[in-house]
C-alpha cells in the first residue's frame, strides 16, 4: 500500500514537472519530448488505478503514433525562436483573455459540482466484480453493447475527418511518372525483345 502511494506521488509529481517543461522549454523539440514524458507518467497513473488496458492504449496511440507525428512536424518546421519571441507582447492580451475565460469556466464548473442523487443507486447497481473480469474484457463488454452507437459514431467522425484532410491537402500534379508494378510484372520478354537471326553480310532492313 505504501509502495502504491509513493508511486502515485512520484508519477503525479513527474507528470506535473513534465507538463510545466512542455510550456517553458525554449526549444519546441524539447517541449515535445517532455510531452512524451508526461504521457508516460499518465500511463503510470492508469496502471496504479488498475486500468492497464487504458495505460497501454495511451502509450501505443499517443506516444507511439501521435507524438511521433508531432515530433516529425516540429523537427521539419524549423521554427525560428527569436521570431516567436518577437510576437510575445503583441499576442499577450489575446492569450490572457483565452486563459482567463478557460479559468473562469473551470471555476464555475468545479464550484457548481454536486454529486447526483442517483450516484449511490448507480454504485449499488449490480456490476461484475472487478477481480473476476479483466478490464480489457470489461471495456469490450460495455463498449460493444451499451454504447455501440456512440462508439460507431465516434468511428465515423474520425473517418470523415481523415477523408476531409486527404481531400483538402491532395493535389494532382501533372507530369509525374508513377511506377505501376503490376504492369512491370506483366511484361514478357516477347513484348519488348525480338530475336532475329541475321545472315552474314546482309544486315537488317
Amino acid at each position: 500500500m505504501i509502495a502504491a502511494t509513493l508511486a502515485f506521488y512520484l508519477f503525479s509529481a513527474l507528470a506535473i514537472v513534465g507538463a510545466l517543461n512542455v510550456i517553458f522549454q525554449r526549444n519546441p523539440v524539447h517541449s515535445v519530448l517532455w510531452l512524451i514524458f508526461t504521457f508516460f507518467n499518465a500511463a503510470g497513473l492508469f496502471v496504479l488505478l488498475g486500468a492497464e488496458f487504458v495505460a497501454m492504449i495511451l502509450v501505443i496511440v499517443y506516444v507511439g503514433a501521435v507524438a511521433v507525428l508531432f515530433l516529425f512536424v516540429v523537427m521539419m518546421l524549423d521554427i525560428n525562436i527569436t521570431m516567436v519571441r518577437e510576437g510575445f507582447l503583441k499576442y499577450l492580451p489575446v492569450g490572457l483573455l483565452v486563459g482567463g475565460i478557460l479559468l473562469a469556466e473551470l471555476i464555475t464548473v468545479f464550484a457548481g459540482w454536486v454529486m447526483s442523487d442517483s450516484a449511490d443507486v448507480l454504485r449499488a447497481a449490480p456490476a461484475p466484480d472487478p477481480s473476476d473480469i479483466g478490464n480489457t474484457e470489461a471495456l469490450g463488454l460495455i463498449l460493444y453493447t451499451d454504447y455501440i452507437y456512440v462508439f460507431q459514431a465516434a468511428g465515423i467522425i474520425l473517418l470523415v475527418a481523415m477523408i476531409g484532410s486527404i481531400v483538402l491537402t491532395h493535389r494532382t500534379r501533372a507530369g509525374v511518372r508513377k511506377q505501376v508494378i503490376g504492369e512491370q510484372n506483366a511484361r514478357r520478354p516477347s513484348d519488348t525483345l525480338e530475336v532475329v537471326k541475321v545472315e552474314s553480310g546482309k544486315g537488317l532492313q
Binding site: V29, L33, I36, E52, F53, M56, I57, V59, I60, V63, G64, A65, V68, L71, F72, M75, G134, T136
Partner: peptide
C-alpha cells in the same frame, strides 16, 4: 505475467522510433 502482455510488447516496439528520431535530430 501481464494480462495485456501483447499490448505491452506492441507499445514497446512502437517506441523504438524515438531512439532513431532523437539521434537524427
Amino acid at each position: 505475467d501481464l494480462n495485456v502482455g501483447v499490448l505491452y510488447l506492441f507499445a514497446i516496439s512502437s517506441l523504438g522510433v524515438y531512439g532513431v528520431v532523437m539521434a537524427g535530430w
